[in-house]
Design a protein around this nucleic acid. Structure first.
Lengths: 147, 147
DNA sequence: GTAAACCCTAGAGCCTACTCTAGGGCAAGT
DNA sequence: ACTTGCCCTAGAGTAGGCTCTAGGGTTTAC
């Protein structure tokens, strides 16, 4: 059993445009064509596509995904290269996770302030500090007066 | 005390180009200029810039960051809008975290396979399945022979 | 007073990742 | 046969986020 490009688009959430773009970019060398030139996706292809989405969702570049897929197409001899590529990518993902967690904390700090009962007072204080900073440096106050 | 654009670039890790681009994009309306038109950053400006980086690092679009900064410039009256904007962004960040964690698991699954002592055997099995899939659908085998 | 090292703007260029259009073929139902 | 709804390619266009160039003024050290 095989799937048309439209069916695959529905299954994956990618657009037909994107799938064709991925193919053009060398990400889908494993997808077969029928006699009319139509793409025919197998279940195995969907698994590989799932891996591609996984890499894409973790912000791997198309060019690097292509490298990985090329290794896969070359068979078991490329296990070491695949491992090296994924290990390096893994580190980036872990680093991104740490950064997100850190930044989320700062966003939460701001949110807590905005949600507090005395939010306006706290924001006014913040503003006072920023204004004092400008004054101290002999600079104009860029903030709008809310009088 | 104020900082030049170069000093701010060094402190933040952003390039001078990027800082000017951010200013042009309306992200830095609070930065003052001296009589020669040179930007003069205060410590308060650096704090705001830090917030901007925080939002940028969590993949907020420049246009949305501009909206947030515009609220900040308008003073304490915009607390509700700031809260709404950040709350919505927070949800996106949390969703991204979940997706990253999920995808990292899948990457780790692959990595474990590639690092296992029987990696080659397992990859061969994977390949066998993919090939069987193609055969079953009456399609050509796209994988390279490693004989 | 001059060279080196800054600063500025406007606007062009670049890169990634799509997204869409034009022009045309194929497949299924009536 | 013909309409509808798919499929295809090539290539143009778009959006976002920088990055750089050209042309020109300023500041600092000697």
């Amino acid at each position: 059993m095989t799937y048309t490009i439209k069916e695959v688009a529905e299954k994956t959430g990618l657009s037909i445009y994107t799938l064709r773009y991925y193919d053009k970019s060398g990400l889908l060398p494993f997808v077969a064509r029928n006699t009319s030139g139509y793409r025919e996706f197998t279940d195995g292809d969907l698994q590989l596509l799932h891996t591609i989405c996984c890499l894409k969702n973790t912000d791997m570049k198309i060019a690097d995904i292509r490298t990985y897929i090329t290794y896969v197409m070359q068979g078991p001899d490329t296990v070491k290269q695949r491992q090296a590529l994924l290990a390096k990518h893994r580190e980036k993902v872990v680093a991104k996770q740490a950064q997100l967690a850190q930044n989320l904390q700062e966003i939460d700090y701001k949110l807590d302030m905005y949600r507090a009962p005395d939010a306006v007072a706290r924001v006014k204080d913040e503003l006072r500090l920023a204004k004092a900073d400008k004054l101290l440096a002999g600079l104009a106050d860029p903030f709008q007066e809310t009088h």
